[in-house]
Design a binder for these strands. Sequence first.
RNA 1: UGCUCUGUGGUGUAAUUGGCAACACGUCUGACUCUGGAUCAGAAAAGUUCAGGUUCGAGCCCUGACAGAGCAACCA
Length: 573
Amino acid sequence: MNFVNPKEKEESKPGVSFIEQIIIDDIRSGKNNGRIHTRFPPEPNGYLHIGHAKAICLDFGMALKHGGKCNLRFDDTNPTKEDVEYVDSIKEDIHWLGFDWEDREFYASDYFGKLFEFAVSLIKKNLAYVDDQSAEVISTQKGTPSQPGQQSPFRNRPVEENLDLFYRMNEGEFDEGSRVLRAKIDMSSPNMHMRDPIIYRIIKIPHHRTGTKWMVYPMYDFAHGQCDFFEGITHSLCTLEFEVHRPLYDWLVEHLKTSDYKPRQIEFNRLNLTYTMMSKRKLLELVKEGNVSGWDDPRMPTLSGLRRRGYTPESIKKFIELIGYTKVEAINDVSLLEYAIREDLNLRAPRVFGVLNPLKVIITNYPEDKIENVAVINNPEDESMGSREVPFCREVYIEQEDFMETPPPKFFRLAPGNEVRLKGAYIIKCEGFKKNEKTGAVEEVYCTYDPATRSGGHLSEKKVKGTLHWVSAKHSVDAEVRLYDRLFNHEDPSGQKDDDYRKFLNPDSLKILKGCKVEPSLASAGHLDKFQFQRIGYFCVDDDSKPGKLVFNRTVQLKDTWAKMTQSQGQKS
RNA sequence: UGCUCUGUGGUGUAAUUGGCAACACGUCUGACUCUGGAUCAGAAAAGUUCAGGUUCGAGCCCUGACAGAGCAACCA
């Protein structure tokens, strides 16, 4: 035997993302006086989903890690799509994730005045003009990505006339769509966004914050970089699709800045998840069409949905840490998200007994009225969580799938002549069973128990292959259990040529089990309490749950190697 | 047939200033287990899209291909 030096396990460094590297470099070089200031800029037009969580973790996370600040800024430049309802939910979700913007809650609409002034100054510099053409005409004049655009006949309108028209646009003198303000840049630019982009349009729908004060509203491109500038943002982090907007962002900031300071836009890859759809618009459709119960349906990728499903903020942050930030358009596997929540809950969730599909077991040699309280450990991963007493008696329920009349090889559970341990209690042996004559379904199983094998007792060392969870028939509590599965059965429901994602809706994404039996200690469980139903998975108490009418949501299944074995052998039961 | 960006095990990411391609998930073994969970030990799996070039040495630098994505909203 050769003697080898023990492997020196080098601390594998977490590896900073390219964005963090830029931030570190900027701090070192003293750029912006070494200041780090980011922002998270949601549009209040829907609920936050896990893709936003990726951005939130970066925006707030980088600030936190490098001694900077992160603002919350609602990008509310389009009153036709936005609503306060969303503002509140967004704030709640960010806090739930564990981030805080302190007193820096801003709105793009806070800057409407300044933005208007800036637009006026551009007009005065002959860098902006009012265009009277229709959307269609402007669009065709813009050309295509491979063909240059043509100049608008209004492009050389005199400054005074532009000024007059722009003011009158804001006074409501003109109809929506009749006139827009455009930046005068370059109609032949290879970048479509530089072909005299529209920067202001007329909208006469009241704004959720500014009411009817304004009749013209800035476009995203005319707001974002400037707001960053106004707030002193140093690193404006956004997703890859804004890459081509950056020259315009820079152009505008360049005309605004008064010193060396300017914000820098950096783009990273958006989150894509297998079997998941992230488009806000389509999620809204799912809600409106009743394919899900709401934005917080536990199958939704929204933060409110994940929360209700039983995900913890820690697990979501862990997942995001695992996938990283790059410029590659990747599609991440949901199983990694499931791994993250299992990891988290494994350490924190108390173990309990819950039987989803009950099958009655009668222990024929156990006294009729005897009741024993057996002690069961709450969490083998955490001794400090102690143990609890669970009542045991002559009749118990086990899981239907834990009994088979004619078991396949390596079936370690209950079968005629077979012995298993009821966890925390006794070893029992199957002596017989009763079948329903019509359906052939097993209705009752008859067992004997060995009194010497009580858990913890001195003779309890006897080994059996299988250990089953169970509940006392007399003491167990009824519960409804909602089994959730992926909402879509296609690996990439939003990446298909065929845009009708509805085709890929998984018909089995929700299975409601009514007659489940759980141990009595769960009777008083409160909303969002999380448990591991032993041998099954992690569950949390749903919002619909009430005392006497318990409802549990399955967050995620436990890994199940037996299921995998039986599947690969084609022995699905 | 324009511009911009991106190509590293099955998947997602690493690889200090060019120096033996690393980690995680997943997969497969085995050990252990009163959860077929967890844990522990181990294995398979890429030679970095391709072709040239520079160099003692290239995933990294250069050239040229190829592939994918984004961009033509009065959305963000």
